[in-house]
């Protein structure tokens, strides 16, 4: 049996996990399921694409780095785009969610995020059209790993990047003052406020981190597959499934959930074909809700 599908599942799983960190943080700290989160992935990727082609035009050439299919322009653009995506998330919060938050009805916020997702996605389609775009059209040679699995240099780089980002996030949430404040608010917002936690600052940090990681996930998808306005929306169900499977509020849970969803999808493609790939996340979601609604690392409420 050819085990190559595991490598593909690993890449998808890693990027679903990165995206799901934002979903799980907004869900636990701001207490609503954000349907616009998929759009942060797509916007982040288009920010990166626009900036990278801008750099390419300014400094000439589209130099590549080692055997990767992209070079410094994409990397620098990606870092800036992560910042921009965080600011986009903050702006959306200021314009929309902050105004609804005070009314205390979480479901109205879910609905508003649904409307915002529709508008943001169509705006991308308006600006960039629904034609797919690519960071590079070069074809890469895959390097043999173990068990007959081959990975391209891009895939290796992105997996390493995910590992670093997840480790940093985990340490950040565990040790840094703002990370601890975030966990406190997710545990009990009223108590956290009484204890002197600056809740507004926690909310800003949540959006910045969620937006930046969504951008990273989107760029991963853009490099390994392609860039489309619907790329984030199509990933929304896997993101939710991963966040709920891992347990709402848990960063390692979101990443583990993402890996499980990604590898399950790739396995299903092997077994039943690609037609029903998108239904796998739904089946996982239903199974989790039936068997263990709190998720792997979740606490029962």
């Amino acid at each position: 049996m050819n085990l190559q599908f595991i490598a593909d599942g690993l890449i998808m799983g890693a990027l679903i996990g990165l995206g799901a960190i934002g979903v799980t943080l907004t869900y636990s700290i701001l207490r609503f399921a954000n349907f616009a989160h998929g759009e942060f992935l797509a916007w982040g990727t288009y920010f990166t694409l626009a900036l990278a082609s801008g750099f390419g035009a300014m400094f000439g050439g589209s130099g590549t780095l080692g055997s990767l299919s992209f070079g410094w322009p994409v990397i620098v653009a990606g870092v800036l785009a992560a910042l921009l995506t965080g600011i986009l998330a903050l702006a959306l919060d200021r314009l929309l969610f902050a105004k609804l938050r005070d009314r205390g009805n979480a479901i109205v916020m879910v609905m508003a995020s649904f409307g915002a997702s529709m508008a943001l996605r169509s705006l991308l389609e308006f600006i960039f059209t629904s034609e797919p775009a690519y960071f590079s059209r070069d074809i890469q040679m895959a390097l043999p790993m173990a068990f007959g699995i081959r990975l391209t240099p891009d895939q290796l780089f992105l997996l390493a990047m995910t590992a670093v980002l997840v480790l940093v996030m985990e340490r950040f949430m565990a040790l840094s003052p703002i990370g601890r404040a975030m966990r406190a608010v997710s545990e009990n917002p009223v108590l956290a406020r009484i204890a002197g936690v600056d809740v507004e600052r926690v909310i800003r940090a949540t959006w910045m981190i969620g937006g930046a990681l969504a951008c990273a996930a989107g760029v991963m998808l853009g490099i390994t597959v392609q860039i489309r306005p619907f790329m984030g929306f199509d990933l929304l169900l896997p993101l939710f499934a991963a966040a709920i499977l891992g347990g709402i509020g848990s960063v390692p849970g979101a990443v583990l959930g993402g890996l499980i969803v990604g590898i399950a999808e790739a396995t299903a493609v092997q077994v039943v074909g690609a037609d029903y790939r998108a239904a796998i996340a739904f089946l996982i979601l239903i199974a989790v809700l039936l068997v263990r609604p709190a998720g792997i690392f979740g606490v029962r409420e």
Binding site: F35, I107, I244, P293
Partner: peptide, 12 residues
């Protein structure tokens, strides 16, 4: 379960 799980499931 939690109220917004219905939203996510119906989306699915």
């Amino acid at each position: 379960l939690r109220a917004d799980y219905l939203a996510i499931t119906t989306f699915g």
